[in-house]
Design a protein around this nucleic acid. Structure first.
Length: 404
RNA sequence: GGUGGCGUAGCCAAGUGGUAAGGCACGGGUCUGCAAAACCCUUAUUCAUCGGUUCAAUUCCGAUCGCCACCUCCA
């Protein structure tokens, strides 16, 4: 969490508040939104201002290694002294220099050098450092926090595609410049979400807030929507698209409910499941796994889930299977489907149907048997008003909790 | 201008040197006492455009057009 920077300082001034109050407010709002989207809370959410000592360690090492220097305005990273600079974003130093404006800061050795530590301006929050009072440069907190909690080298670093340059490039440079080791094994840069084909922007007023859409759509639907496009590409937000995904998800949700009711209290154990998974079942699981192994191809993984849903529906109707094997057969499919949905965290929570409703349906079925359709229809309406729809099948009536 | 990415049916969206997954929507039909967001079927001779390589290209190469991001401060 970056809890100190220019924006926060400005916002604090605007609202007649202090940086720490502002930072806390937005951090909490962020964590709330994350939770609403069913995103697991990170084990550690370090704050930049609580990791200042670690920043000093890195800056010291960079100075020792000759890739950082002290200038009038702060401690700077020397881009020219780090041979790999530009390797992440595919930029070349000479091209960048041409693009750079005439240096704003004459004290910098290269216009591309960036601040590791900024000396305090009057009235700004500041921390004591070996080089003078000031505050962290933009990128240093990420290097400090990652090396402290994940080590000098770690596997996956995510972020928006807009951060590739300069932020991640600089972060990589200072981390590797200090440690001498490879910083990150895989970078995952995600594409932007547009609104109705246009970039979100405050000036256009076309931005949406997580807290607003979670009121209308479940976390599962939102997640499925986001995962429906490859993460590197752009994602176009629109209510039409979201509703289309919602309609698709309904099928997954209902299928879970049908499975639940068809299997009932059947008690299966993993051994039976594992010994009965045949090549057809395993094939779907492999498709799913391979899709995700292939640069996190979630659209393909989702397509596999829909294929499994189709298999499940066929299985539900397959009464050629001996009764004693039927539930076992379904349990295997449920096991696979659940596994896939859990990975994407879109598995629905199935709430048992209320006793009252079950009783009503029993009455209704009795009326149907007696061909008293008037009474049956009345009950059906009553049940529908409680939010359930019924599917009459040869083997019984499925009671489906409607998805709003 | 530079660098990178993208352009696939009405919409969303994968994919491969060998002839286009999946979802949504639409249309037609079926089952059911009636119904259903249940079931079945249908929907791109074609993958921005134009060339080239190849026995074969949507997939490789080149050009063109269009869209997006970054390339400046700050984050």
């Amino acid at each position: 969490m970056i809890d100190i920077d220019d924006k926060i300082i400005n916002k604090a001034a605007q609202e007649n508040s202090t940086w720490d109050v502002i930072a806390k407010k937005y951090t909490e709002a962020y964590l709330e939104d994350i939770a609403k989207l069913n995103i697991d809370r990170a084990d550690i959410n370090p704050k930049a201002t609580e990791e200042i000592e670690k920043m000093f360690d890195i800056i010291k090492k960079l100075i020792e290694n000759g890739v950082a220097y002290i200038s009038k305005h702060g401690v700077y990273f020397s881009v020219d002294r780090f041979p790999g600079y530009g390797k992440l974003s595919g930029k070349h130093l000479d091209e960048l220099r041409e693009g750079a404006r005439v240096s704003v800061d004459e004290e910098k050795k290269s216009p591309l050098d960036f601040a590791l530590w900024k000396f305090a301006k009057p009235g700004e929050p500041s921390w004591e450092s070996p080089w003078g009072a000031g505050r962290p440069g933009w990128h240093i907190e990420c290097s400090a926090m990652s090396s402290k909690y994940l080590g000098d080298t770690f596997d996956i670093h995510g972020g928006g595609t807009d951060l590739t340059f300069p932020h991640h490039e600089n972060e990589l440079a200072q981390s590797e410049g200090a440690s001498g080791k490879k910083f990150v094994n895989y970078w995952m840069h995600v594409g932007f979400m547009n609104i109705e084909g246009e970039k979100m922007s405050k000036s256009k007023g076309n931005f949406i807030m997580v807290r607003d859409i979670v009121r209308e759509f479940s976390a599962e639907v939102i997640r499925l929507f986001i995962l429906s496009a490859h993460y590197r590409g752009p994602l176009d937000f629109s209510y039409d698209n979201l509703n289309a995904v919602k309609n698709g998800y309904r099928e997954i949700y209902y299928t879970f409910q049908r499975l639940e009711q068809a299997i009932g209290a059947y008690n299966f154990d993993e051994n039976i499941i594992n010994s009965n998974i045949n090549s057809a079942n395993a094939g779907f699981m492999n498709m799913f796994t391979e899709a995700l192994d292939n640069d996190f191809n979630t659209p393909e993984a989702i397509a596999t889930i829909y294929k499994v849903v189709a298999q499940v529906k066929a299985a539900l109707k397959n009464h050629n299977i001996p009764a004693d094997k039927y539930k076992e057969h379904l349990a295997i499919w449920r096991y696979l489907l659940t596994k896939m949905c859990v990975v994407l965290k879109i598995a629905p929570v199935i709430i048992p149907v209320d006793k009252e409703i079950i009783d009503l349906v029993k009455q209704l079925d009795a009326f149907r048997l007696k061909k008293d359709y008037k009474s049956a229809d009345d009950l059906k309406t009553q049940i529908a008003n409680s939010g359930y729809l019924l599917e009459f099948t040869k083997t019984g009536t499925f009671i489906i909790k409607e998805m709003k």
